[in-house]
C-alpha cells in the first residue's frame, strides 16, 4: 500500500519536474530578449531540479543515496539563484556600459561646440562692450 503510494508520488513529482524543465527550455529557446530568457531559465531551473530530485529521493528509500541526493538538492538550491544573479549583474554591467557610453558622449559632443561657440561670442560681446 505504502509502496504504491510512494511510487505514484514519485512519478507525479518526476512528471512535474519534466514539465517545468521543458517549459523553461522552450522559453530559453524562443523568448526574444536576454532578460526574458534568463527569467525563463532561472525560474524553472531550481524548481525542476528540486522536483526531480525529490522524486528520486522518494524512489531511493532510506539509504546513503537519499543523503547524497539531499546534498545535491541543497547545493543546487543555493548555487542556482546565485549563478543566475551573478549572470544578471554581469549582463547589466556590460549592457549599461554599452547603452550609456553613446548617451554620455552625445551630450558632451553637443555641449562642447555650443560652449566653444558661446564663449567666443560672449568674449566678442565683452570686447565690444569694453
Amino acid at each position: 500500500m505504502i509502496d504504491v503510494l510512494l511510487s505514484y508520488t514519485s512519478g507525479l513529482l518526476l512528471f512535474l519536474g519534466c514539465f517545468f524543465m521543458l517549459t523553461g527550455a522552450i522559453g530559453l529557446l524562443r523568448f526574444p530578449d536576454f532578460y526574458s530568457r534568463m527569467h525563463a531559465a532561472g525560474v524553472t531551473d531550481t524548481l525542476a531540479t528540486v522536483l526531480i530530485l525529490s522524486g528520486l529521493m522518494l524512489m531511493a528509500g532510506w539509504s546513503l543515496a537519499l543523503f547524497k541526493l539531499a546534498l545535491i538538492m541543497l547545493f543546487i538550491f543555493f548555487t542556482s539563484p546565485t549563478a543566475s544573479h551573478a549572470l544578471a549583474r554581469s549582463a547589466q554591467l556590460c549592457a549599461l556600459r554599452l547603452t550609456h557610453a553613446p548617451v554620455d558622449n552625445g551630450p558632451a559632443d553637443v555641449s562642447r561646440p555650443t560652449a566653444e561657440t558661446s564663449t567666443p561670442a560672449s568674449r566678442m560681446e565683452a570686447a565690444e562692450g569694453s
Binding site: L28, F34, R37, M38, A41, S84, L87, A91, C94
Partner: peptide, 11 residues
C-alpha cells in the same frame, strides 16, 4: 551575445 551562451551552458 556571450551572456546567452553562458546562461545556456549553466542550464
Amino acid at each position: 551575445s556571450i551572456h546567452d551562451r553562458i546562461l545556456a551552458v549553466n542550464m
